[in-house]
């Protein structure tokens, strides 16, 4: 049984100034899912989202948005939070939300009413008549986010939505994303922070260097790496390394190594017989972060994280 797709992209290509920024990206976002587009900074995530939304046209490739070949025709059913947040500083908060709704076809009157309700639910009821320039950066960001969902879109596209938010607001945003999914919306968001993607995404795509490197579920991404053992010997010493796999790493009192296909039992037996014993042993599945590093490359990730600080 095939699931309907809210967004599809086939071979999207975009060049800027002779440089290929997006290089043949394919995407298929199932309706009603939370879908993450992951990648380091400069990977081409924003450009891909902009092409999907019809803000810019691809040089090559095709895309559909909510079943329409022309993304503009679906714009009333789409909500979008751009990476570079932008609001009119002189507008009142509720007017800003209503304005963004009105751009998507929501009558002003309903937009204003919903804006007040949503701001009250978000704990910002006292600020409905505040001008945007009077709001803190986090509050203004929240107002823009509310503006992107005020018309109750079928598809919500969020470009790096967590950047610039404190941990409390990040948690609030995760709740909002789940609430939007519960309402029936499809959520497509880009990020280079794995923790959010790991908690939220039903499916994800990893983009690096303008190409799609992975597409699947979080579990499938994590499954690309073997399970990992954290072994703590009763008696440590350099001889332990000779028994452990070659890629084992010494981390404090622990040895961390990937578990081979034949399991860990034989290795433990050998360690015990050699007199090192087992003071502790835990087996873990690698996180999305590790899978991402493996897919994208450690160097690119380090660069991305340094830039995110």
């Amino acid at each position: 049984m095939s699931q309907s797709l809210a967004v599809t992209a086939h071979g999207l290509v975009k060049n800027f100034g002779g440089r290929r920024v997006v290089d043949g990206v394919d995407l298929a976002v199932p309706t009603g899912t939370i879908y993450g587009v992951l990648g380091p900074n400069g990977a081409g995530k924003t450009t891909t989202l902009r092409m999907l939304l019809g803000i810019i046209e691809p040089d090559e490739g095709e895309r559909t948005l909510l079943g329409r070949d022309r993304p503009r025709e679906a714009s009333d059913h789409v909500g979008y939070l751009p990476e570079e947040r932008g609001l009119y500083p002189q507008m009142k908060a509720r007017e800003a939300i209503a304005f963004m709704g009105a751009l998507r076809g929501l009558p002003w009157k309903i937009g204003r009413k919903r804006a007040i309700e949503m701001m009250e639910q978000a704990g910002l009821g006292y600020a409905v008549d505040f001008k945007i320039r009077k709001l803190s950066k986090g509050m203004a960001q929240l107002v823009q986010l509310l503006g992107s969902v005020v018309h109750q879109p079928d598809l919500l596209v969020l470009d790096e939505p967590f950047s610039g938010l404190d941990p409390v607001n990040q948690e609030g945003l995760e709740r909002l994303i789940r609430a939007e999914q519960a309402r029936g919306a499809t959520v497509l968001f880009s990020t280079h922070v794995m923790a959010h993607a790991e908690r939220l995404c039903d499916r994800l795509a990893i983009i690096a260097g303008g190409k799609r490197r992975f597409e699947g579920t979080v579990a499938e991404a994590r499954g690309m790496l073997p399970m990992r053992a954290h072994y703590q010997p009763e008696r440590d010493g350099p001889e332990v390394a000779a028994i452990l796999p070659a890629d084992a790493q010494h981390n404090g009192r622990d040895w961390v190594f990937p578990i081979a296909d034949n399991g860990v039992e034989a290795l433990l037996l050998k360690l015990t017989q050699s007199g090192f014993g087992v003071a502790g042993l835990s087996i873990e599945r690698p996180g999305l972060h590790d899978a991402f590093v493996r897919i994208v490359g450690a160097e690119a990730l380090a660069q991305a994280e340094a830039e995110a600080l």
Partner: peptide
């Protein structure tokens, strides 16, 4: 509008290599 929308910040970002 779209040309300037790329902006210097984004252009800088795009020039960074993404390994792997």
């Amino acid at each position: 509008v779209l040309k300037s929308g790329e902006g210097p910040k984004r252009k800088r970002k795009q020039q960074q290599p993404a390994s792997s």
